[in-house]
Design a protein around this nucleic acid. Structure first.
Lengths: 108, 108
DNA sequence: CAAAACGTTCGATGACCGTCGTACAATTAG
DNA sequence: CTAATTGTACGACGGTCATCGAACGTTTTG
């Protein structure tokens, strides 16, 4: 109806040098989000639905947004799905060893 | 007045194999607590008061407790002071590389 | 076009968090 | 003994968080 020129800036991703350690650690301090991290560690792009998480859809949306806004994952639109991937290069560049340490933790 | 035999179990410290990754990451997701970690990285034992933190005493108590209960630091009573030290061996044993990665992060 | 699939948005709820100030307890110093 | 030092305990406050359910939008499928 109005302003079609400012259509949609939907997916906010911080730049690599904007990644903040407290925000990243907070994003990873939730068991559901740790599981998402572990599932993305292979490097694959995966849709939200392909994760078998113990929460309802809208809560998933919340967790993926927290991870994206902290710069942990990247979200890309593909049709009706969001493809999620780990921003491993950016994380490794800014916080060397952090992702490896988290992924190597017991009982993940 | 009663039961002097169960006098005081004051300082709770989780065992090494009880350290939980979400709890540790949450403990480290606060800037004040990250600063405490960085200040303890030398291995010294330091009193709470020796930290120059931008919060009042009771808030310091809170932050040191969060770190202790997550297993990040050890607190020992010495007279009227609490001596704090990093549980680096336990952390390194259970989450190899994690402390190093956090301490190596930029803008700490 | 209609229905299904995939996610988002919004509002609500109950829990927790970081902060402070005051009061208190314990030890040490005068 | 008194006063100072060091830290805790408690209550309050505003903010954020994780969760859900219901409604909606967009894209694919029938």
């Amino acid at each position: 109806m109005l302003s079609p020129e400012v259509a949609a800036p939907p997916l906010l991703h911080p730049e690599r040098d904007e990644l903040e350690l407290p925000a990243v650690l907070h994003a990873l301090s939730d068991p559901v989000r740790l599981r998402i991290l572990a599932d993305l560690a292979s490097g694959e792009e995966r849709s939200c639905k392909s994760f078998d998480l113990p929460v309802v859809k809208s809560t998933c949306t919340h967790h993926f947004r927290v991870l994206r806004e902290a710069g942990v994952i990247r979200q890309r639109l593909e049709g009706t799905t969001r493809l999620n991937s780990l921003r491993r290069e950016d994380l490794d560049a800014r916080f060397p060893g952090l992702v490896d340490a988290v992924l190597g933790a017991p009982a993940l």
